[in-house]
Design a binder for these strands. Structure first.
Length: 607
RNA sequence: GGUCCUGUAGUUCAAUGGAUAGAACAAGUGUUUCCUAAACACUAGAUCCGGGUUCGAUUCCCGGCGGGACUACCA
């Protein structure tokens, strides 16, 4: 079990109450029901109480009205569980008030646990490999890649927090016809340009030639069509595409000159990618390159052909017949013997399982490739790999612009480097306008601007349910107010500021001396929110959803800001209460920081 | 044509089958001799349509209508 949590306070409360409710139902109505079948939910804000038992399921057995049934169960609970201090029944809902003492003691536990919500990874932990990013080396990263990278990195962090050993991996599509296109274009039209000679980032330079190829190719097609050729034929017989295909063949045959050019141009791209990854704050434990795995894939396909799992056509191409599985036939090797994406993915998967004792393999790849992964699992299964069908495709939705899908041909692609820079610039300007960082050094200002700019971008993307398509409007840019990363970061900084002042005044808030205090509803509700954190972490791991954590933190922060606004902390005259509020504030800050870290977002001490 | 995803305020997003569907942005209005106003408060505004299952449906099922993806010797 990876999800056991030493300190699952919320679960403890729900479990004990569930158990007593089950007892009550059995004693009162003779209905046997498992404690975990009891429907417990957080009480809606407009009613009194913290936890609500849904009474409807017992009404039949009770043969009484929902109100009366709730009343009876409530009385039983109050008698038999000291944690329940009061209750009220509204319609079929039994609202329970939990004793203040319970909340305060819970706060002490949370405050004393720096790793609250985190399940430690041990030697016995199972291993999850997470593939994400997976760029092509023919163009720079764009907004779509950003969502992929942020999701992949965050999910890795979340699974670690749930006790998994995680290996983050990347498969670089560093070869293939698309790479040959930019290589060919550079060779024909590049005039020897380099990143140094142009001042362009390497990935951007190579991307430029990919576009050059496309333009020239299109022109050739048009020319051929003007002579009366069909579009399909023109696409197949244009000189440029034939030349690129020749180059791919030469590459697979280890032609020295082609390999040399390939190494040089990929080197430029990697230098560029490294910068982008570093700025985004993502990294990998192990990188695979298609050029190093496709041969393994080829030999697997050949083995599959020998075993009659696949078949060869007259033209020499190799196919898998998946019509028996409700799918189509799938090409695995072209007639000229070169491999396709699927071929490489087979080889990569095999190598990974050779390299690591993988318990769960997760591919973070967009939903446009759902079909691909369905096929991949089937093919691996047909090849006899027992893990084939257990591969997990974490399929996330596309990022769209207000005008619709990003299209490189129409120049509507939002570049990753540009976008990050714009966000950071905006953060810097906002800080200056508000005069927040007037006492900081230029280095501090830069660090904070980067944190806030990137925090804004990352939170904006991660707060959305990953499975859904999302819209990104670069013109309106991203707001720094409301449900945003900076709002959360700001709240953290605000708390830290109060804590610094408290420390300066020599106030001790290392623990709570008095747990019999009387605190406000707002305060005990905040504690209740804090107790939910471990369950949120667990659920976001199970559902592969950073959005759950993002939305939780937002709720917490919104609630804290109301508290901050309505109550004084340092000027509170009651020393015990002052201490309590500091402990509450510090615990909130810790959870904000821990939670944001699971999203790959840093929080500043001041901003 | 086939397979799959999706439809919630003007916009961007929430809501284990539960109470009067929550936020934020945008619009309008307030709050600072007080711990950071990147904040807080107030006003106005939404479940595509039609059936079904259920004590109860935004949620599950069926049928429409709208949007998207995939179905390549592309990746």
């Amino acid at each position: 079990m990876h999800f056991e949590q030493n300190n699952e306070l919320k679960m403890n409360l729900e479990t004990t109450i569930g158990t007593v409710v089950a007892q009550a139902v059995e004693t009162l109505y003779g209905l046997k029901i498992e404690a975990n079948q009891i429907q417990l939910q957080k009480t809606k804000r407009e009613f009194e109480g913290e936890l609500t038992v849904v009474i409807f399921p017992f009404v039949k057995a009770a043969r009484k009205s929902p109100e009366q049934t709730g009343q009876e169960i409530g009385e039983y609970l109050q008698k038999n569980n000291p944690v329940v201090s009061a209750f009220n029944v509204i319609k079929g809902f039994l609202n329970l008030s939990i004793s203040q003492n319970y909340w305060l003691e819970t706060l002490v536990q949370i405050h004393g646990d720096a790793q609250f919500g985190i399940t430690p990874v041990t030697d016995d932990s199972q291993l999850m490999m997470i593939e994400y990013s997976s760029p092509n080396t023919n163009k720079p990263l764009h907004l779509g890649h950003i969502r992929n990278n942020l999701l992949g990195f965050s999910i890795a962090e979340i699974q670690k927090a749930n006790g998994w050993k995680v290996v983050k991996t990347n498969i670089v599509n560093d070869r293939g016809i698309h790479i040959c296109k930019s290589m060919l274009a550079w060779k024909l039209f590049g005039n020897g340009e380099t990143p140094e000679s142009t001042g362009l980032k390497g990935d951007h330079l190579v991307g430029k030639y990919y576009v050059v190829f496309d333009k020239a190719f299109k022109a050739e097609i048009k020319e051929l069509m003007d002579t009366g050729m069909s579009e399909d034929d023109a696409k197949k017989s244009a000189p440029l595409i034939l030349e690129a295909q020749k180059m791919l063949l030469a590459w697979e045959n280890n032609d020295a000159e082609v390999r040399q050019l390939w190494e040089t141009m990929n080197g430029w791209v990697y230098a560029g990618f490294d910068k982008t990854y570093k700025q985004l704050g993502v990294d990998f434990d192990k990188i695979y390159y298609e050029s190093e795995t496709y041969l393994e894939g080829k030999s697997e396909v050949e083995r599959g052909e020998a075993n009659k799992a696949f078949y060869r056509r007259e033209d020499g191409s190799v196919w898998a017949d998946l019509t028996g599985d409700g799918l189509d036939e799938k090409l695995l090797l072209r007639s000229d013997g070169t491999s396709v994406y699927m071929t490489q993915d087979i080889g990569t998967a095999k190598l990974r399982y050779n390299d690591y004792p993988i318990n769960k393999m997760v591919y973070v790849v967009g939903n446009e490739q759902n079909y691909h992964f369905q096929v991949l699992a089937l093919l691996l299964d047909k090849l006899g790999f027992e893990w084939g069908k257990s591969l997990v495709h974490f399929s996330y939705g596309m990022v769209e612009l207000p005008e619709g899908k990003m299209k490189s041909r129409e120049g509507t692609v939002v570049d990753a480097d540009d976008l990050m820079e714009e966000m950071i610039d905006t953060a810097r300007e906002t800080s200056q306008e508000l005069g927040k960082l007037d006492n900081c050094t230029p280095e501090e200002i830069e660090t904070i601007a980067r944190m806030v700019g990137l925090g804004s971008l990352k939170y904006f993307i991660l707060k959305v349910d990953p499975r859904k398509n999302m819209t990104f409007n670069p013109k309106e840019s991203i707001d720094f107010n409301g449900n945003t990363g900076p709002f959360i970061q700001y709240t953290h900084a605000r708390i830290k500021s109060v804590l610094r002042k408290a420390a300066d005044q020599g106030i001790d808030f290392t623990s709570l001396k008095d747990t019999n205090l009387s605190v406000s509803e707002k305060e005990s509700y905040l504690i209740q929110l804090l107790t939910e954190f471990p369950a949120v972490v667990r659920q976001s791991g199970e559902e592969f959803s950073p959005a759950l954590i993002a939305n939780y933190i937002y709720d917490l922060v919104k609630e804290y800001n109301q508290f901050y606004h309505d109550f004084t902390i340092l000027k509170e005259e009651n020393e015990a209460l002052k201490q309590f509020r500091l402990v509450l504030s510090e615990s909130t800050a810790t959870i904000i920081k821990t939670g944001m870290k699971l999203l790959g977002i840093e929080v500043p001490e001041r901003m």
